[in-house]
């Protein structure tokens, strides 16, 4: 039997902390719940966990500094929990290196999906990078730089492909607007939101995705885009 993945939950609200512990332990994770950031960082550095769930509204430290101090020594996946009115902090946390976010209140299925994706990214560091993204009829071959829809190759401009590739490498996870702009168009393009919109639009058209009812590329208003988790 595989070792249980260990998750550190840094959450000051006891109800949520208790619920997470119960729900996740039932799912077969080992949970270490702590009520404040300092203890969380200490525990994480002493026994590096497989995942950290971090609440953004901690009383002793703000989320960004916690992520920053963790990222100084570890690439452990971090999922942040945010309230609805913490939009900007959430985006900042993602920019600082958090892997994903969950807005309170969240359902269990959402939580499990996020944890799953994040853990996969965490475990990947020892394995060679995945070569292919596949969901339903869409296949992205990251080695050959080829895209197939229902088995047929689709021709794409380099920018369109780059965009899809960034999303595919982080499939299932949100990619912020500025990260997309930075990686695809370069450092100076971070302000040019409309490039991103226009190219996402073209990309959607090419892979037959309807923005009104998306199957692959999901818009996260104010944050960025998320490609559906691979099969």
């Amino acid at each position: 039997m595989a070792i249980k993945p260990r998750i550190v939950v840094i959450e000051d609200e006891p109800e949520i902390s208790r619920f997470l512990k119960t729900a996740l332990e039932a799912q077969g994770y080992s949970i270490n719940a702590v009520p404040d950031a300092k203890t969380g960082i200490k525990i994480s550095s002493a026994h590096p966990p497989d995942l950290i769930i971090l609440d953004l509204g901690l009383p002793d430290m703000d989320g960004k500094s916690v992520i920053k101090s963790i990222r100084e020594w570890s690439q452990v996946p971090i999922i942040v929990l945010s309230a609805r009115d913490q939009e900007t902090e959430k985006v900042a946390a993602l920019e600082m290196g958090a892997d994903d976010y969950l807005t309170k209140p969240f359902g269990t299925s959402e939580l499990q999906a996020r944890i799953r994706v994040a853990l996969r990214r965490g475990s990947r560091k020892e394995q060679p990078e995945e070569q292919k993204y596949m969901f339903e009829s869409l296949t992205v071959d990251l080695l050959k730089r080829e895209v197939f829809l229902k088995g047929k190759a689709i021709s794409m401009t380099p920018t369109e492909y780059d965009l899809l590739a960034v999303l595919a490498r982080k499939a299932g996870r949100v990619v912020t607007q500025s990260e997309l702009l930075r990686t695809v168009w370069g450092k100076n393009a971070e302000e040019n939101d409309h490039y991103l919109r226009i190219y996402v639009q073209r990309l959607r058209q090419k892979i037959g995705d309807d923005p009104l009812n998306p199957q692959y590329v999901f818009t996260e208003p104010g944050v960025g885009y998320r490609l559906r988790e691979a099969e």
């Binding site: 997470l20 119960t22 729900a23 209140p105 359902g107 269990t108």
Partner: peptide, 13 residues
């Protein structure tokens, strides 16, 4: 909201 989040999460589970 905190207890509500917990309730929603728990019922979901």
């Amino acid at each position: 909201r905190s207890p509500l989040s917990a309730i929603i999460g728990a019922t979901d589970t």
